[in-house]
Computed example of a mutant assay.
Amino acid sequence: MTAPSLRRRLLIGLLPSLAALWLLGTGYILARSWDELEEAYVDQLDQLAYSLAQMLDETVGDAAQAVDSVAERRDRNYFVLVTSDSRVVMRSARAPADLTAMPDSGDHPLYYLASATTPEGRLTVIAGLEKAEVRQLTTDIVTGVALSMALGLVAMLAVLLLTIRRALAPLDALRGELEARQPDALDPMPVARLPAELAPVAAALNRLLDLSRLVPDFN
């Protein structure tokens, strides 16, 4: 049975380790990206609620203008304006009908929520975004990142194969030179341009050729 080639040995030795490192790195990056994106959307809600609260005063007319302003920008966020006694003053089109105040726990099973109170303390702005929508947006972004990293893995494998091929080129050249030699060619092999790993092999061959020249030819 023929022993595996050096190329195959190198690939077998390097590919599993590189693939494992790539998978670990990719998994970590994707997990962190997922968390960071969700946190970014929540931070956006906090900023939206705070900004609107700073804009509004106690008049309902200004609250309506703020709702219309966000609707015109087609923001994905919805918000609800609530008076201090939890009476709804204004509600955006996408706001759930059953939401009239910030949950005591600060969490909702279907929505990310953030709230802020106007400087006068008369109105509370609740900004929210559907969790399903956030997850879909996050999934789309993370999927795009994963595909890019998969292409990076393919490129890395191509570079690895090219590097192995170039690294073994001197060995192929040495083999070609030996195969091209005539049986009676006993001149030394060139050693100067060989890599350090192959130079001892060529030197040993040259010593063998030197000994062959000393053997009498009885033909």
Results as ranks from 00 to 15, higher is better:
residue 34 W to D: 06
residue 35 D to T: 15
residue 35 D to H: 07
residue 36 E to T: 04
residue 37 L to M: 14
residue 38 E to M: 14
residue 41 Y to N: 09
residue 41 Y to W: 13
residue 45 L to Y: 02
residue 47 Q to L: 03
residue 48 L to F: 05
residue 48 L to V: 12
residue 50 Y to M: 10
residue 51 S to V: 07
residue 51 S to L: 12
residue 52 L to G: 07
residue 58 E to P: 00
residue 60 V to S: 12
residue 61 G to N: 09
residue 61 G to W: 07
residue 63 A to V: 06
residue 63 A to H: 01
residue 65 Q to A: 11
residue 66 A to Q: 11
residue 67 V to D: 01
residue 68 D to C: 12
residue 68 D to N: 15
residue 69 S to G: 10
residue 69 S to V: 12
residue 69 S to Q: 07
residue 72 E to V: 00
residue 73 R to K: 08
residue 74 R to C: 13
residue 75 D to K: 11
residue 76 R to P: 05
residue 76 R to N: 09
residue 77 N to Y: 01
residue 77 N to L: 01
residue 80 V to R: 02
residue 83 T to H: 13
residue 83 T to L: 11
residue 85 D to S: 03
residue 87 R to N: 14
residue 89 V to T: 10
residue 91 R to L: 11
residue 92 S to H: 02
residue 93 A to W: 04
residue 94 R to G: 01
residue 96 P to C: 09
residue 98 D to A: 15
residue 98 D to G: 02
residue 98 D to L: 14
residue 99 L to F: 06
residue 105 S to A: 10
residue 106 G to C: 08
residue 107 D to E: 04
residue 108 H to N: 13
residue 109 P to I: 13
residue 109 P to D: 06
residue 109 P to R: 10
residue 111 Y to A: 12
residue 113 L to N: 05
residue 114 A to M: 03
residue 115 S to T: 07
residue 118 T to V: 02
residue 119 P to H: 02
residue 119 P to K: 03
residue 122 R to G: 09
residue 125 V to C: 14
residue 125 V to G: 08
residue 125 V to E: 03
residue 126 I to Q: 03
residue 127 A to P: 00
residue 128 G to Y: 04
residue 129 L to C: 10
residue 129 L to K: 03
residue 129 L to A: 08
residue 130 E to P: 06
residue 132 A to M: 05
residue 132 A to V: 14
residue 132 A to I: 13
residue 134 V to P: 07
residue 134 V to R: 09
residue 135 R to F: 02
residue 137 L to C: 08
residue 138 T to R: 02
residue 138 T to E: 07
residue 138 T to D: 08
residue 139 T to H: 13
residue 139 T to C: 13
residue 140 D to R: 15
residue 141 I to E: 06
residue 142 V to Y: 15
residue 142 V to T: 03
residue 143 T to V: 10
residue 144 G to Q: 12
residue 146 A to Q: 00
residue 148 S to G: 06
residue 149 M to I: 11
residue 149 M to N: 01
